[in-house]
């Protein structure tokens, strides 16, 4: 038996393995507590949507998981490995399992669309260039941009840029995809195209999704579980039928009536 298997005991074959776990996670900015002793976990392959009012800490959770920021208290584990604190090497291994799509796309403007997608697979995963390109073209096809491989991000619409960003994240073959309001910076007529791509990915892959969105219709379609946030705590959670249909908490009802 290798050291590795000792470190990561296989979960019982029947249970859905827990991919992400947050325990008692607290995050403060200055004196302001943004996440307040947060506990929740996400099972592998599930699609979890985070909803809640502005400033409730949704983005902060995704940024913690992506290691773009650090918690003040509590533990976060991904696939059984702890982040914060963890040696740089382990952090890099964990990051390989996570992909993120940002609200403002954050494509690299100095690279073509194709290179945006192949850059990390080549330099991080060590994929041969032609293999990475072949895969990038498949992904571009998946997001409906097969003809844009040679374009610069600046030549694309916001919706197209966001679809490239989705392809770029998927090219690393992550187990988890973090999506932070990926349509909220888009012109209204471009939103549907991006959401369709995400619905498609949710349906046709086994990827775990953690998704912050204000698109309640989309959340209802793809979610296995919806978490309602307020002031850095989970107010209520459950399947979309329950949260959108018969929420228990007054706070959830208020929030939904304000956005729907």
């Amino acid at each position: 038996m290798s050291v590795d298997t000792v470190k990561h005991p296989e979960p019982a074959a029947t249970a859905t393995p827990e991919l992400i776990r947050l325990e008692n996670v607290t995050k403060r900015f200055g004196g302001h507590t943004v996440l307040d002793g947060l506990d929740f976990s996400v099972a592998a392959g599930k699609h979890v949507t985070l909803i809640g009012p502005s400033g409730s800490g949704k983005t902060t959770i995704l940024r913690l998981l992506m290691t773009l920021t650090t918690p003040d208290e509590g533990t976060i584990t991904v696939d059984g490995d702890q982040l914060f604190p963890a040696p740089e090497k382990q952090v890099r291994e964990i990051r390989k399992k996570i992909g993120m799509v940002f609200q403002h796309f954050n494509l690299f403007p100095n690279m073509t669309v194709l290179r945006n997608i192949t850059e990390a697979p080549v330099t991080v995963l060590g994929l041969p260039k032609d293999e990475a390109e072949a895969r990038a073209r498949e992904l571009l096809d998946l997001v409906g941009l097969a003809d844009k491989a040679g374009a610069r991000p600046s030549q694309l619409s916001g919706g197209q840029q966001q679809r490239v960003a989705i392809a770029r994240a998927l090219a690393m073959r992550p187990q988890v995809l973090l999506l932070d309001e990926v349509t909220s910076a888009l012109d209204p007529e471009l939103v549907a195209g991006v959401l369709d791509v995400l619905r498609d990915i949710a349906r046709s892959t086994k990827i775990t999704m953690l998704c912050v969105t204000h698109e309640m219709g989309f959340a209802r379609d793809i979610s296995d579980q919806v978490l309602m946030f307020d002031a850095g705590r989970v107010v209520e959670s459950g399947p979309p039928e329950k949260i959108f249909g018969e929420p228990e908490q007054e706070r959830t009802r208020q929030f939904l009536s304000a956005v729907l």
């Binding site: 890099r92 990051r95 954050n106 690299f108 990390a120 991080v124």
Partner: peptide, 30 residues
Amino acid sequence: VPAGQWEAALALNLPRRRTWTAVILPQAIR
């Protein structure tokens, strides 16, 4: 160079040196 560029590079796990040479410096220099 916008913070989002550093964040995207980190999210893609690009090594620090590569982040400089492939992402940050080309944008800064132009």
